[in-house]
Design a protein around this nucleic acid. Structure first.
Length: 931
DNA sequence: GCAAGGTC
């Protein structure tokens, strides 16, 4: 069998189709992986890298004494599978193969991915011959040519990729750990560092600094307004920007009629049709439609997977010869673009436009299939339409403008006006995304005199450079060689998820600035794009076999050690700097009680807002637990409390805007206040004025303090505190009920726990005890199913029973034994005979008596007579001596309170029979025997 | 728990 390994599934499919020619290809899905077979050949696709580099075992603990971050520099690197299913399928197929061909993309990463496959094959089949097919496009001619000219894997090319992997891992991981540990950040708050992300972040921080330090300069623009044929025309002074106000004023003073036309220059200008789309220009075009980089790529990948557009990750802006442009136009006929296609076919430019970058891996992004607006709703259609229209535009003629430049003289002061008119829209007909702004001037004649309506001197200010938009940043990253077409948008996503930057345009956060500062000061190698350039030069040398992989990595190790010399010498200082700079990130504003800073605090699963004046000031505001999202500060500020708004953010969930934490705190506690019978609006106002917002505070305050705050007598204050305590109990029980419901009733669409809970509350069911007494019909009305109702009732009764028994004073250890014996209700304690309970549980009857006594007293029921251990054991012997009574019969008799000879002889056989199920005659026989 | 690079 000849095994062919491609870079991805879709390539495998297409390669198989081409190589099979007229033969039928059998597609087989094994799990989630497909193979394509024909003749004796099987083609299988990888998923890019199917293995990943990591450190050898022993380096997982970040805070290890023996393996601090620096030791990662010299740690061994291993490859471990990330796509286990594909790895095992490749190895299964490799065992049977007598020839293996690596057919991954022809670039450095592709060669490395090929080498990974090579190693997987070698591990299970050491002798099979392995070769390499190199092609620059998956087209019939290219693929056939490649398979007729099979070569060997280029190990030097792959080694260049391996050097990049190792260097990225050791720099990224060691510096990430170092900085995170120094700043005492862990878990979701680590501070990451990397060859691509750190310079990108540094650019954003740098731009923000430029904006902050920008000193605007004032300048003046001089213009006049004239008119012809009742249209107003604006002409600007040819001096342009005046930096000197006096000079501008003088020019304005000199400007007077007559205004004479001195020259007219007419011309034509071509407006070139746009070039084919590579990933970056696609992201730029999509951003004009309002798509973020990541969203545009996500949609493009979806369209690609469904065959509507070509591969969206490409650096190519030139259509390859092999691309069938006519075929694509034909595909688009009959779609919503029918008229546009017809126009393009009729007016087509001789050669399609071409951009500056030409690469061979993939063609520019172009339509691959026909789609309808109905099939692709909303955003997907917008992106598809963009790709289609751009494709059409690249085949369309340039647009042509008629331009006119008119020069005027106003008593010696020169002015000019320019106009433009679109005479042939060309490509703009099919690509309406950039507006063509016309400015049509009336026809002038040289020497013509005009009136001056107004002369305007406008004062203006120079503007700071703009913040980076996502698309602009991706363009700059590309210019600097940072990241790849596939990763640039992900890098921005990473900076956002690390909370280094926010917004679009992108602004750095305090954390982002602090990390950039720390790295700039002590490890600037990693914040410069230079590192990537050097790495690429070294990789080039490896490819040319002028240097080895290990030699390059060793040099990088040496550099990183020097960086660590500097970092370790300043660890304390670096950590403190970062902590100091980022404290503000958690500060929401002044404490209403003492005026110190209020800060968001995270402690494990809970989070709250506390006062930095703690413990002197104990003011705090509770926040929903971190399961609802991590609390962060946002820019908006509450005008009333001067506190920053708070938002909970959680992966995969929309953010929960809490708003002003104090407003929200007050609002959520007002309802509880109103549950207190003695609460009035006036009293509530007084409490709020003294920053008392919770029932809990009232319940725990000293009466005299509360009396002073509320302006009532101490005894009234004590009543209030008692009421508050009762409200707390009610609320606690409600919470308990809520938790209980959540555990048993699974949430369903249209039936949230909140809804059910509200309905139960309406029915007066506010705690588990009330629930245990509820009628099934009531629960059904609240939207709870029959089975769930049954379970709710059973479980809630169990809980109530157990609670009563605990309250009565039955110890938990004994409760367990009763439960195991099936004795759970308090009634069972009061009604069942003590010997029976003792026998069932194996407990001492005297202990049982103590429990029964407690329960009966607790419930106000009569306490049964005590049975001593001696009497109990003697009774057993007496009864077991009676012929016909064994252990089983004894158990039954005990149920009827019969546990010794005396209780048996005095028993009423009929009654005892009814309880025990033993025939009355048999019981009479036992009694006769004893007598 | 860490990077960057493939791909989904």
């Amino acid at each position: 069998m000849h095994l062919i390994i491609a870079e991805k599934n879709i390539s495998a499919n297409r390669i198989a189709g081409i190589l099979a020619g007229n033969e039928k290809v059998r597609a087989v899905r094994e799990g989630s992986v497909s193979t394509y077979s024909f003749d004796t050949k099987t083609v299988v696709g990888l998923k890019g890298h199917v293995v990943e580099v990591d450190f050898e075992p022993g380096y997982t603990n970040w805070r290890s004494e023996t393996h601090p971050p620096r030791t990662l520099i010299d740690a061994g690197v291993i490859k471990k599978p990330t796509e286990k299913k594909i790895v095992s399928l490749i190895q299964k197929l490799a065992k049977k193969a007598d020839l293996v061909t690596i057919a991954t993309d022809y670039d450095t990463e592709g060669e490395l991915i090929g080498k990974e496959a090579y190693e997987l094959v070698r591990a299970v089949n050491p002798n099979v011959s392995i070769n390499r097919a190199r092609f620059s496009a998956i087209t019939p001619t290219e693929i056939r040519r490649a398979f007729e000219n099979l070569a060997d894997l280029d190990f030097a090319l792959a080694a260049a990729g391996e050097a990049r992997q190792s260097i990225d891992l050791m720099w990224g991981a060691s510096l990430t750990r170092f900085i995170s540990i120094a700043a005492r950040r862990g878990g979701a708050n680590i501070l990451s560092v990397g060859r691509v992300q750190s310079p990108t972040l540094a650019m954003i921080v740098e731009r923000e600094r430029e904006i902050e330090s920008f000193v605007p300069e004032t300048y003046w623009m001089l213009s006049l307004e004239t008119e012809k044929e009742e249209t107003a025309i604006e002409a600007r002074h040819t001096h342009g920007r005046f930096d000197d106000h006096a000079e501008a004023l003088a020019a304005k003073e000199r400007t007077r009629e007559p205004l004479t036309v001195t020259d007219i220059k007419e011309g034509q200008k071509k407006d070139r049709a746009p070039t084919p789309l590579d990933t970056t220009s696609f992201i730029v075009a999509a951003s004009r439609l309002g798509f973020s980089a990541a969203n545009a790529m996500r949609i493009a990948e979806d369209l690609y997977m469904n065959g509507y557009i070509s591969y969206p990750r490409t650096d190519n802006t030139v259509y390859p010869k092999s691309l069938n442009l006519n075929g694509i136009l034909k595909t688009l006929r009959g779609t919503a673009f029918d008229a546009d296609v017809a126009w393009v076919e009729k007016n087509r430019r001789p050669v399609p436009t071409r951009g500056k970058k030409e690469s061979t891996d993939h063609p520019p992004i172009h339509p691959a299939g026909a789609a309808s607006r109905e099939a692709l709703a909303g955003d997907r259609w917008k992106i598809y339409e963009l790709v289609v229209r751009r494709f059409l535009a690249t085949l369309s003629p340039d647009a042509t403008w008629a331009t006119i430049k008119c020069l005027f003289d106003a008593a010696g002061e020169p002015y000019t006006a320019t106009g433009g008119r679109l005479i042939d829209p060309g490509w703009r007909r099919v690509y309406p995304y950039s507006e063509a702004k016309e400015n049509i001037l009336p026809t002038f004649a040289v020497g013509e005199r005009l009136a001056i309506r107004e002369v305007t001197l406008e004062e203006k200010q120079t503007q700071p450079p703009p913040r980076y938009s996502q698309s602009k940043l991706i363009q700059v990253m590309e210019e600097l060689g940072l990241g790849t077409k596939s990763t640039r948008h992900e890098v921005i996503g990473k900076l956002v998820s690390r909370r280094y930057v926010q917004g679009n345009p992108l602004r750095p956060t305090l954390v982002g600035r602090a990390v950039t500062d720390a790295l700039d000061n002590h490890a600037d190698t990693i914040t410069e794009p230079e590192m990537t350039r050097t790495l690429e030069e070294h990789m080039q040398l490896i490819k040319e076999r002028q240097r080895t992989r290990d030699d390059v990595i060793d040099e990088s190790r040496e550099m990183l050690h020097r960086v660590f010399d500097e970092l370790e010498a300043h660890e304390e200082e670096i950590g403190e700097e970062i902590r100091e700079q980022t404290a503000e990130e958690h500060t929401v504003g002044p404490c209403p009680v003492c005026g110190e800073d209020l800060r968001i605090r995270h402690t494990g699963a809970s989070q709250f807002i506390g006062c930095t004046g703690y413990p002197e000031c104990r003011f705090n505001v509770s926040l929903p637990g971190s399961m609802w999202g991590r609390a962060i500060r946002v820019d908006e500020v509450c005008p009333e409390h001067r506190l920053a708004h708070v938002r909970l953010i959680r992966k995969g969930a929309p953010p929960w805007n809490i708003g002003c934490p104090l407003c929200s705190h007050i609002k959520s506690n007002v309802e509880a206040f109103r549950m207190m019978p003695g609460m009035t609006d006036d009293l509530m106002r007084r409490l709020h004025a003294r920053h008392i917002y919770t029932v809990y505070e009232i319940a725990t305050m000293q009466p005299e303090e509360l009396a002073a705050v509320a302006g009532v007598t101490e005894s009234a204050a004590a009543d209030l505190a008692a009421e508050a305590g009762e409200v707390l109990t009610i609320l606690r029980r409600r919470t308990e009920l809520r938790k209980f419901l959540r555990k048993i009733v699974p949430p369903r669409r249209g039936r949230s726990h909140a809804k059910i809970f509200a309905k139960l509350l309406d029915e007066g069911i506010g705690d588990i005890a009330a629930l245990s007494r509820a009628r099934p019909a009531t629960l059904k009305k609240a939207g709870i199913g029959e089975k769930e109702t049954e379970e709710l009732l059973t479980r809630s009764r169990e809980i109530c029973h157990e609670r009563t028994l605990k309250e009565a004073g039955v110890p938990a250890v004994s409760l367990k034994k009763y439960r195991e014996a099936g004795i759970t209700s308090p009634d069972a304690f009061c009604l069942l005979p003590i010997p029976y309970l003792a026998s069932k549980t194996g407990l001492n009857p005297e202990t049982v008596y103590k429990h029964v006594e407690k329960v009966c007293l607790h419930l106000g029921r009569p306490v049964p007579a005590k049975v001593s251990r001696k009497a109990f054991e003697r009774g057993r012997e007496e009864l077991l001596a009676v012929p016909g009574i064994g252990e089983a019969t004894l158990d039954r008799l005990m149920l009827a309170g019969i546990y010794d000879a005396e209780t048996l002889t005095s028993a009423d056989p009929a009654a005892a029979s009814a309880i025990t199920g033993i025939a009355a005659a048999t019981i009479r026989a036992y009694i006769a025997h004893l007598k």
